[in-house]
Design a protein around this nucleic acid. Structure first.
Lengths: 159, 159
DNA sequence: ACATAATTGTTGCATATGCAATGATACCGC
DNA sequence: GCGGTATCATTGCATATGCAACAATTATGT
């Protein structure tokens, strides 16, 4: 006579919970799908990763920035930005110069080669953005607004 | 007389592009915000990571599954699932048994301790889901539908 | 029945990542 | 002007990750 004879088998003490309906999970999967789609293309055609892409696009947009600027602008840890910038420098796409004035800062900018690459890359990104907006149809703007609300609301450790 | 004297300074050959309006980036940031909010709480109060959470919740929901099942159900690489399961087994939250019938499979299930932990954890997740739905207001359902469309459309390498 | 292909889970290995510590420089109060 | 504090970028280190290789098992075709 085991304990099982005394107790109902597997009492369902656990509440039902479907992960596939859990918003944090759903957003994570959606992000992964979009990023993978992009990463495949960028990697195959230009040999750059998502971190590479983020740094490059900010430099293209700003015309030059410090590690700290990029960290804040594209939501990457500063060590990740630093290593990404070094890698891109090694490939000749980014130039590192000491900042005139504040010598703690490193001034990053695109090289001519980096600009040439971005000249090819940015139109692709613009196309992709347009394609997404088309695919998602009229609900896209509302979707984008909710996205912004999430980004704003769930910011610091306050959650 | 440098080259700069001959050429217009910094010819803007690059199209304007604002990363913060790029949907793949926006979804990635939103996902990161939501995940970090969750991860902080789960880690602080239960010592579990997001991969841990995904495996545990699927086992709670299914009542038992193979590595392959989990891989498909919660969108994680099988090596990641395998290592996560081993870690959870080491902590006494998950049991590994050989599968009767197909001996290639490993049958994973929650231990009593694992069930107890999930009994504490799942209500928190449900609350969080409700809180999100509240925060995002009436647009939430439409948002969720678009999310589903992204998950469905941007699946395989076809993108 | 047998050889071949396919599936499953684990592991090795190279790389990526996050966090803390460090070194260098700039800022601030007195 | 000086000492203490804050900011910036890099690096060390431990861990996490992805991918391919692998061993074990099962399915398939003939």
């Amino acid at each position: 006579m085991t304990e099982k004879d005394h107790m109902p088998a597997e009492p369902r003490t656990l509440p039902e919970f479907d992960l596939t309906r859990f918003t944090p999970y759903r957003v994570a999967v959606a992000a992964q799908r979009l990023s993978e789609t992009l990463a495949r293309e960028y990697r195959a055609r230009f040999g750059i990763s998502i971190p590479d892409w983020r740094v490059l696009v900010h430099l293209a947009h700003s015309g030059g920035a410090s590690v700290r600027d990029i960290e804040a602008a594209v939501v990457m840890e500063k060590s990740k930005v630093s290593r990404t910038a070094s890698r891109l420098e090694g490939r000749g796409l980014v130039a590192k110069k000491p900042h005139s004035g504040d010598r703690r800062l490193v001034h990053l900018s695109l090289t001519a080669e980096g600009e040439a690459l971005m000249a090819d890359l940015l139109p692709l990104a613009t196309d992709f953005q347009d394609r997404i907006a088309d695919d998602l149809g009229p609900g896209f703007h509302a979707f984008d607004a909710v996205l912004q609300k999430i980004i704003d609301d769930y910011d610091g450790p306050a959650g």
